[in-house]
């Protein structure tokens, strides 16, 4: 994932303490999602990095409007909705432009224009990338919180699809503790995601 430390720093400096941790988590999840969406829309690496920065800056510009509206719900939830819209709009526009004059070939542009509902289609690309980013982020966080055998038991069963019996034999654990391990990891992942998406903040 490309790093954009300068953007991150300046954005963080401007944000108040209340939303700071929400914003850090937001960046951790969103940077990757936006970047991969750009790539899957055919943008080159450098362009994808540009767009990612633009989107994050545009989202940040909107953050200032947050406090003024009491109907917006939680900061996190609002941030996610705003970011989703801006991401889809910007990436789609940029992909269209670059297809238009980058290649001089209008076939790509035509294809983009012919899609039945480009916004909806890009929405689902974005949602897929977002989910992948979110689970990667939540998984990484949870992995740091549990014992390594707990994580392995979870990964062998819930991700790689081994039976609890096989995983138990491989790790030298009892079947009951494999169930315990995988359920505890999933419960923690769920708590992280709820927190990220605007549930009550603080330790889950």
């Amino acid at each position: 994932m490309p790093d954009i430390p300068q953007t991150r720093q300046s954005l963080l400096l401007e944000l108040g303490r209340k939303s700071e941790s929400a914003w850090v988590e937001f960046l951790q999840v969103y940077e990757g999602a936006i970047f991969r969406m750009c790539r899957s829309k055919g943008l080159q690496d450098a362009d994808a990095q540009d767009v990612t920065q633009e989107v994050l800056a545009a989202v940040h510009a909107r953050v200032a409007t947050w406090d003024s509206d009491p109907d917006q719900g939680s900061f996190r939830g609002w941030l996610m909705r705003v970011a989703r819209n801006i991401s889809i709009d910007s990436v789609t526009n940029r992909a269209r432009r670059s297809a238009g004059h980058g290649s001089g070939d209008s076939r790509v542009e035509q294809m983009l224009n012919e899609a039945p509902d480009p916004w909806q289609e890009d929405g689902s690309i974005f949602d897929l990338e977002y989910s992948r980013s979110m689970f990667a982020w939540a998984g990484e966080a949870v992995r740091g919180e549990v014992r390594s055998t707990t994580w392995k038991a979870f990964q062998l069963t819930s991700v790689q699809g081994l039976s609890a019996e096989d995983a138990a034999a491989q790790l030298g654990l009892t079947v009951g503790s494999v169930y315990t391990a995988k359920c505890r990891v999933v419960a923690r992942i769920r708590a992280k995601i709820i927190q990220l998406e605007g549930g009550p903040s603080g330790p889950a």
């Binding site: 992995r143 991700v159 359920c183 419960a187 769920r190």
Partner: peptide, 25 residues
């Protein structure tokens, strides 16, 4: 029952779908 308390069946299948390409421990 413990699996259900930990997360819905959608969550379990999302975990499986989205976490497969994360490098192992």
């Amino acid at each position: 029952a413990l699996e259900e308390v930990a997360g819905s069946s959608e969550l379990w299948s999302e975990v499986r779908a989205h976490m497969a390409d994360i490098p192992s421990a």
